[in-house]
Computed example of a mutant assay.
Amino acid sequence: MIESRGATGGRPGGSSQKNGGKPRGGGRVDPRLREPTWRSAFIRALIAAGIFVAVMLALKGNPVSVALTGVILLGLYTPFGFYTDRFFYRRRMAKLGQQDRTKK
């Protein structure tokens, strides 16, 4: 007969001392409830501009003009994406009745 060991972790569903009292599962926050950052806007803009450049190069575009257009798009997409995210974040926070952390 083989017996299995009992639970060796902390209380089920509770918090343990190891993770500083955070809930199990990483305590992930809904991404829509996080404040927008310039970094996230830049990464999204980089991906969009990269896809644009790849498609245009596949269509046999001039590599120099395609690369220049990609850099211009990166410069336009970044602030546009940030301010769009911030608009929707503020609207969502107002709808939830929470205080906006971005206003000073």
Rank of each mutant, 00 (worst) to 15 (best):
E3S: 11
E3K: 15
S4F: 08
S4T: 10
R5F: 02
G6K: 09
A7E: 13
G10D: 10
R11N: 12
P12Y: 13
G13I: 07
S15P: 06
N19V: 10
G20H: 05
G21F: 02
K22H: 09
D30W: 06
L33K: 13
R34H: 04
R34N: 10
R34V: 07
R34M: 14
E35P: 07
T37W: 02
R39G: 13
R39H: 12
S40K: 12
S40R: 14
S40Y: 03
S40F: 03
A41N: 06
A41M: 11
I43R: 11
I43D: 15
R44I: 03
A45Q: 08
I47V: 12
A48S: 11
A49F: 00
G50P: 02
F52M: 08
F52W: 03
A54S: 13
V55E: 07
V55Y: 05
M56F: 05
L57V: 03
L59A: 15
G61K: 02
G61W: 01
G61A: 08
N62F: 05
V66A: 06
V66L: 06
L68V: 15
V71G: 03
I72K: 06
I72W: 02
G75P: 01
G75D: 05
Y77D: 09
P79C: 09
P79R: 03
P79I: 09
D85R: 02
F88D: 03
R90D: 01
R92E: 08
M93R: 14
A94S: 13
K95S: 14
K95F: 09
K95R: 14
K95I: 04
K95M: 09
L96D: 11
L96I: 05
L96V: 01
G97D: 08
G97R: 08
Q98N: 10
Q99V: 13
Q99Y: 03
Q99T: 13
R101D: 10
T102L: 14
T102M: 12
K103V: 15
K103P: 00
K104N: 11
